[in-house]
Amino acid sequence: MGESQSRHLLGIAGLERPAIQALLDRAAAMQRRPPEKLLAGRRVLVLFYEPSTRTRTSFEVAARRLGAETVSVTASASSIEKGESLLDTVYTLRAMAVDAIIMRHGESGAPFLVARHVDVPVINAGDGMHEHPTQALLDAFTILRHKGRIAGLNVAIVGDILHSRVARSNLWLLSRFGARVRLCGPPSLLPAEFAALGAGIECHHQLEPALDGADVVMVLRIQMERMREAFFPSEAEYVHYYSVTAERLRLARPDAIVMHPGPMIRGVEIGAEVADSPQSVIREQVENGVLIRMAVLEQLLAPAEAAEKSA
């Protein structure tokens, strides 16, 4: 992966810890002092093959705050059905003088394919079940705001781990920074091999031990759209065993924070009272997303200028 990883942001798995730290630091600096419009005159393509509200908007806001122009293309299912390949679509759009491509795609690895074939930075805004690197970065940023550290924290990630790109990006980042990551979900959505993906990763098939003494509780949605087979009997049964309710949250540390990457289905994976509790930092995650995405865009599109400004 080496060559491609420095020019693009394709995933957390290929990022060294110092590179992650630099992005987190830069986002923190931007929170203290709004950044300059270093990307004035640049054009960023926001190419989404999957529906998204918050991630797409967040990237657009981040790019514009840095002065860039954004071109948003939402590829409907019909344009795929017409038969144009991903690469042909990207070549066409690249020809319209874009300086970077932010892309979301339903198939794992699609941004890697694009990155191999274009000469501009590619930012992965979520690919299939693989990675969602800016989500993990904003989650780490949010955890740092509240806990001041990641090393040594107990982080529970609860839900549909198998189909979750958020879980994968987070487990790589958190494990690399020394957290103990407790993955939790029904066995059919949490294969045991997940424990082999990083240091300090545990797999739990029961919620209570996963929440016990947790510093951070990250709740994930059940991705019905990625399930063709029966992974569990019913939503009601999932709620019975895995919904993070106020009562169950009491097993976590009293100062535990609750996170959710959205979209959130109240009453299913998370109790409404938990989502609205003071422990919930869900809305703050959204704000932090813009900061992180600004840091990423600046680092990939104007690294020299950014270094100069911060010096």
Binding site: A13, S108, G109, D127, G128, M129, H130, E131, L162, R165, R168, P191, E193, F194, A196, L197, R228
Partner: peptide
């Protein structure tokens, strides 16, 4: 629906 061997590598790649 599978596209590669089921195991840790597939989990890592999200395939």
């Amino acid at each position: 629906g599978g596209v590669m061997h089921e195991g840790a590598a597939a989990l890592r790649l999200g395939l």
